[in-house]
Nucleic acid binder design. Sequence first.
DNA 1: CTTCTTTTAATCAAAGATAAACAAAGACAA
DNA 2: TTGTCTTTGTTTATCTTTGATTAAAAGAAG
Lengths: 255, 255
Amino acid sequence: MLVAERWQRIVQLVNERGSIRVTELSELCQVTEETIRRDLDRLESEGKLMRSHGGAVSVKEAQSEVPFLERETAHADFKSAIAKEAVSHIREGDRIILDASTTAWYMAKLIPDMQLTILTNSMKVALEVSGKEKIQVISTGGLLSPKSLSYVGPLAERSLDMYHVHKLFLSCKGVHIQRGISESNELQALIKRKMISIADETYLLADHSKFGMQSLTQVAAWPEIKHVITDGLTNKEDVERIREKGVHVIQLDKE
Amino acid sequence: MLVAERWQRIVQLVNERGSIRVTELSELCQVTEETIRRDLDRLESEGKLMRSHGGAVSVKEAQSEVPFLERETAHADFKSAIAKEAVSHIREGDRIILDASTTAWYMAKLIPDMQLTILTNSMKVALEVSGKEKIQVISTGGLLSPKSLSYVGPLAERSLDMYHVHKLFLSCKGVHIQRGISESNELQALIKRKMISIADETYLLADHSKFGMQSLTQVAAWPEIKHVITDGLTNKEDVERIREKGVHVIQLDKE
DNA sequence: CTTCTTTTAATCAAAGATAAACAAAGACAA
DNA sequence: TTGTCTTTGTTTATCTTTGATTAAAAGAAG
């Protein structure tokens, strides 16, 4: 039997059974366990399977082993980099708003434990910062939106009315050079408009995928947004045109 | 069975059940408890689960800071039984309040998916019922109390002001035959008073350990409480005296 | 707070699995 | 053919995993 054939057979067997022992493969392929081990090492380095003491497990099986917290990995690196930059704009003593976006959630994870008041409509953000002793967390209540675990509706808006903050860190669905930012959900748009109205300064957190998109509901025009933080893949011309509107745009380096 | 397979199985079981004991895993996987402990240590260091005395908790459960395996302790059994009885008083279409107590959290777990509006100041309760499609969840916002993950303060009270509910399920720190119910925390007491004022009927959920205790702040006198649900260990005389005040007391059987 | 029980961590020995070194066999090109 | 390279098997030393035993720690109960 050809070597390549054996490799193929091993991968197939592992995938069929989910897992298999070296001993068994040795018998099935009629080669010594040593050879099987060498095959497995090689196949693992090619990502075809995962090694385990005594045998191998299929990649698929091994992946389902990590079903915990959080699905979104797309753009995660960009979001996380943007979040990091945004966090560096927070000062001791600030009162800030974090919205219910993934980027805000990353921010919540990154914020150091310092004297700070955080107002949010996101349950995930609230949960994340609740462990930090010096941070005071205020949650708008409201109707709980089950998918995003965020609060919306009239109660959320009225809650915001009671406060005033220094900085707002906001995300959106679409960023348009002329028209400003937009949101796909009417309820979310209302909340975001309210947030902008009670904040001194608004930081828009938007990765490159948001640019050029326009969504259902307009949230704000450019003069209302003071800062934009975006990643290195955003079109430089777009960035320049937004700067011409008087917005302070921070573009991160590529990678 | 391959080690990796066992690890997968353990992670899966932990995630399905939220928590699991070493003993059970040992039986299910047919290895000694020692081995399971070593597996758990390893899986914990990989972030796949969280270790706890006697077993393991899924990462998700652990985030909601639930005292692990509390359900298996004596007190928890009472609380769970009381919660079960309380849930049976909920009707399709009801608007109800669940407070931020452990018992309310048990209720949240037990409530079937039916057309219902739940108003709560507990993040844990909100999280728990957020998965149920037919249930509308409204959270009072407010200042987040990190230990209990509940909302308190003026914003929470004002939020409650906007609503009216049919039934309130309430717990407390102390139940006094003459003076009614009390709470150790002033902020919590204010919230609870407000809750009582916007509810048609109040169900007090109190296990036997609460009786005879009197805490700092008075929350309500007897006429305001319409129903009391307690367990079988509560002094029968106490129960009788409370009934004389015109309160409908449901005492569960022992066990 | 103290006692009693359960759970854990540490250590050891045995079984099993692995990696490293080396030799043998086969493939292939000059 | 010869020399080199790859693949495979063999041997041996090493590392991992496991269960058993025991002392210490943590929790529950009174």
